[in-house]
């Protein structure tokens, strides 16, 4: 579904992360791990088409990403940002309905059918009771679930998530992870970045470890999420990681 081939990403000609290769199929989850400043956000912006690749190619389906029109791309690939405050007090339902925009005519309002899809997305995320609540007044976890519901309403095959569990309390982290697994089981291709290796271990089919401008490791979580590798990635002693997370193997 999503394929990165020999991809180098960066800003204004300056490479931040080099030589990335990845194949992500439907029903799979890929997790991106790396320390602050390792270029995770740059890679995600490139996947969304906001930055052109400096080298190599992003393939979505059978076409290179840059050949996708904005609307067709939005119907195929949905982006879930970190839950933000929100500016105006849109209701949660309205926020989810925004996910339907790519399916609407330019001048159209969401129809009853769109509302039903939004309602179903809210129900799948377990927050139908929040539909009429202002997005600005619900908790951070609920906002993150609402943004997931929006991506669901977008009916895209590929989901790209930027640290969806940061800033959430423990319960909400688990809730979001459970929803990601459910989405994977529905056949979505999921690409997410996170700072929490234990999340990667729980949901990932493959992990991508990036740091110092290149890919440090790539493959199954069992192989790569060892205290040694994580210690190298985050520049801490492996004993500390083992003491904290336990031995992954």
């Amino acid at each position: 579904m999503l394929e990165l081939s020999d991809l180098t990403v960066g800003h204004r000609g300056r490479a931040v992360l080099r030589s990335i290769n990845l194949r992500l199929e439907s029903g799979q989850v890929a997790v991106l791990l790396g320390p602050n400043g390792s270029g995770k956000t740059t890679l995600i912006r490139t996947l969304l088409g906001h930055l052109p690749p400096l080298w190599g190619q992003v393939w979505l389906g059978r076409q290179p990403l840059r050949e996708w029109s904005r609307v067709a791309l939005a119907r195929t690939l949905a982006y879930v940002p970190q839950a933000h405050q929100g500016l105006f007090a849109f209701t949660v339902e309205e926020v989810v309905l925004m996910g339907r925009t790519a399916h609407l005519g330019v001048f159209a309002l969401p129809s009853q059918a769109d509302r039903r899809i939004a309602q179903a997305a809210l129900e799948q995320m377990g927050i139908p009771h929040l539909a009429e609540k202002p997005y600005t007044e619900v908790s951070g976890g609920e906002r993150q679930l609402a943004l997931l519901a929006r991506a669901l309403a977008q009916e895209a095959q590929v989901l790209v998530l930027d640290e969806p569990t940061s800033n959430l309390d423990f319960g909400n982290q688990l809730r979001v992870l459970a929803q990601l697994e459910a989405l994977r089981d529905q056949g979505k291709a999921v690409f997410l970045s996170t700072h929490q290796p234990e999340h990667a271990r729980r949901v990932a089919d493959q992990v991508l470890l990036v740091g110092e401008g290149s890919v440090l490791g790539q493959g199954s979580p069992q192989t790569w999420l060892t205290p040694e590798n994580l210690g190298r990635l985050y520049r801490v002693e492996p004993q500390h990681i083992e003491a904290y997370l336990g031995n992954f193997r």
């Binding site: 969304l48 904005r70 982006y79 925009t101 330019v106 159209a108 929006r150």
Partner: peptide, 23 residues
Amino acid sequence: ILLRWRINLLSLPDEEAASLGVH
């Protein structure tokens, strides 16, 4: 009036609105 739905999405950050299909 014609674009009233889409204008809502401009209150999102630019890249987020773009990823929802808005120019």
